[in-house]
Design a protein around this nucleic acid. Structure first.
Lengths: 226, 226
DNA sequence: AGAGGAAAGGAGGGGTCCGTCATGGGGAAA
DNA sequence: TTTCCCCATGACGGACCCCTCCTTTCCTCT
């Protein structure tokens, strides 16, 4: 599924043009027309990227910006006198584009920052208790024994371990492993999780993967017992 | 000093009732009796919040609304057929109340939006006494023990904790959690609140959620006892 | 004080989601 | 071609969650 992008702009015309162009590129677009509405939306949903206009009713873009955490924000502004560019970047923006802008350029910047937010560190070793995953060697070791995983199982486990003790939604998992296995549906995901758990359980009794009802899954690093 | 509120309403009676109630709450109230007068006033003074009637002589409320920038506007209208609610919110209103309205509810909404315009920083972690909610990890910890909540319960608690010691109306809660549980009604909300309270009480004796008669609920952070 | 309305809490039904197994298809290696 | 591995699908039992209904308790206003 496409990446989710939130457009925060009170200008209907500009917003519509953006939305149309982005959806044409396969993105899933949401809209917010004021700073408060945006914060309300973000409190419930995490898009993959935010396009933020500075001229907003209510909370201004500058005020909204520092409250957006963990999501790349591209500022889209008509203000020509951007000598506060530094302030924007310090405030959390990853990039900025001035109106009027070339749609191609904006799309390019979007794809750059989306890739960043996904990949970031695509190498290295991930740990979670006794569980060690080596992304480069594509191996998983659990308490001395190494565990043999299929490609899909490995991708799922890696995604979970990249966000330790953080909930990963089912759609996020499906998005991520879509590169390897495009046809994976929500129901078949259950099977993969089941296999993955079985293999980890065979190497050690503990259950690392925890289900969050109606949301998704998360890694559980702490041992539970009296 | 009290926050400044501008009432834009040509109806003397309604305006007087509003003014009296607001001043009783400690707000500083100004009045405007037409759209043009309001814009004139706003060009010189910036109140913290605006109450706007839609039925105005001269410039209508809908016309005035988009010209008010940077100040939260609550629309107070007698129009029952608000299918243009969306238009209002798009036009810059942060909220709306239909006449006849409960003064309590209006006051609650006013305090919410005033608070919003000041700020309440939004990191993923919310605290209220010993109660800690992590929106990212989707966990709730109360005095060391972590509390296991359902999706709906979590959404409700999160919304309440985002507005600490402020009243959240039932309809606000329903609007907010509609994404997760669309069928939730006002009566079933009571059950969720009940379950939520039971779980919090099991982890610690204190009751964090307080009912506000006829309006909604609020978080209570101070311990009450002799 | 009494009536009406609102909130609290418990019980139960029904629907949704999860975990697991069995089955079949498809691709790669032997 | 045969074999093996991997993945998707469907079914099913069980767990979980949400809503409705009901009764009791509490608040507010007359």
């Amino acid at each position: 599924m496409g990446k989710k992008i939130l457009i925060i702009d009170d200008d209907l015309h500009v917003g519509n043009v953006l939305e149309e162009a982005l959806e044409k590129e396969g993105y899933v677009v949401s809209r917010a027309y004021s700073g408060t509405e945006a914060l309300l939306y973000l409190s419930g949903t995490k898009p993959d990227l935010v396009l933020l206009d500075l001229m907003l009713p209510g909370l201004s873009g500058e005020e909204v910006l520092p409250r957006i955490k963990g999501i790349p924000v591209i500022v889209v502004s008509a203000k020509v006198d951007i000598d506060n560019k530094v302030d924007l970047l310090l405030g959390g923006a990853v990039d900025y584009v001035t109106k009027p802008f070339q749609m191609k350029e904006l799309l390019a910047r979007i794809s750059v920052h989306l890739r960043e937010s996904i990949g970031a560190d695509d190498s290295g070793i991930l740990r979670c208790g006794d569980l060690v995953l080596d992304a480069d060697r594509r191996t998983v070791i659990l308490g001395g024994n190494d565990v043999r995983l299929t490609r899909t199982e490995f991708a799922i486990l890696k995604l979970l371990m990249q966000n330790p003790s953080l909930v990963v939604t089912k759609s996020q998992i499906l998005d991520r492993i879509a590169q390897d296995t495009p046809d994976c549906t929500e129901s078949s995901l259950k099977t993969h999780i089941s296999h993955l758990r079985a293999k980890l359980r065979a190497a050690q009794g503990m259950d690392y993967i925890e289900a969050v009802w109606g949301i998704g899954f998360k890694m559980n690093e702490k041992k539970e017992n009296p």
